[in-house]
Amino acid sequence: MMRLWIVSGLMMAALATAQVWLAHGRYAIAHKTTLARHHVENTQAEINRLGLELASLTRPERLRELAKQRLNMAPPLPMQVWRP
């Protein structure tokens, strides 16, 4: 009878320990999931920001000015335009 109680007690203790271990595991996974989600959101935001920066840097008016001022380029003359 005494042995049965001891075994039951040990099993209870083991189950309790497992429960605590699982709770910690769940917590760690939740933490990782939250971090991953934030990472995805931040990456998406960075993509948007970089896309916008690219659009700002390559806007036609800016390129036109840069081509004129830095590269001494000019619009093509009619005879320089040819369609392959």
């Binding site: 619009p75 005879m79 040819w82």
Partner: peptide, 17 residues
Amino acid sequence: ASAVLPYLGLPPEDSQP
């Protein structure tokens, strides 16, 4: 017109090869 047509790949008529 003179800026957009070349951009669209349309050459002027008097230089059409």
